[in-house]
Design a protein around this nucleic acid. Structure first.
Lengths: 104, 104
DNA sequence: CCTATCCTCAACCACATGGTTGAGGATTCG
DNA sequence: CGAATCCTCAACCATGTGGTTGAGGATAGG
């Protein structure tokens, strides 16, 4: 879980995932829109790989990457535990009004 | 967004959030179950604060923390973009995805 | 075979993270 | 007042992160 959230904590890696959601891409294609060297982008791919978010298939000299979304499901499940807390605000406000009615 | 995911990428901080989901807690109470010094735990609280996930109210010498779940809603929304990838295994409708570049 | 291409690796650098200890400010309590 | 409590800050250390450049392995294409 640490690895997944850490992988998501960098814009370049989120951009990679976003593009991989459309189709498979090579490391070079993933690196192309980013303003950094190919070696730096390659490291980011490795971070995504260690988090289980990307699988790599080496065909010849090309490394084709594809999205592996399963860990994102775990992360989403973890976050949904807190769903009450960002939907509950209206309820709390509502309770405040009713308390004013009885309390004061 | 970087800050939110980074804040979630450490077990100690996730434990803090989990406990804050039940009730407000002081820094000392948050630190108590963790196997680290109070000063270290205090730094973790600061990380959560910078990410907007925790608000602090200083009353006397006690610093009372409460959960601020709104940033988690954003993170959850970001993750839900990928929901189809872990629910629909091999779909041919991926061309429906909208523009990629605007991560941020 | 020769060369251009794709990608990783290694070394290096600057800076952030995550932990410690010690000092001390502010507050509460006897 | 004096002492205990809660917490932050500063200094320090080890390690990780994110970037660079340069070298080079493997493969595809003439």
């Amino acid at each position: 879980m640490d690895a997944v959230f850490h992988a998501l904590a960098h814009g370049a890696r989120r951009t990679m995932l976003r593009r991989l959601a459309e189709r498979e891409l090579t490391v070079g294609e993933l690196a192309e829109p980013l303003e950094m060297s190919l070696a730096a982008a390659s490291k980011h791919v490795q971070v995504l790989e260690r988090a289980g978010l990307v699988k790599r298939t080496v065909t010849g000299r090309r490394h084709v990457c594809r999205l592996e979304a399963a860990p994102l499901a775990s992360a989403s499940a973890w976050l949904n535990f807190y769903e009450r807390h960002w939907t509950e605000r209206l309820d709390a406000l509502e309770a405040l009004f009713t308390d004013e009615g009885t309390d004061r």
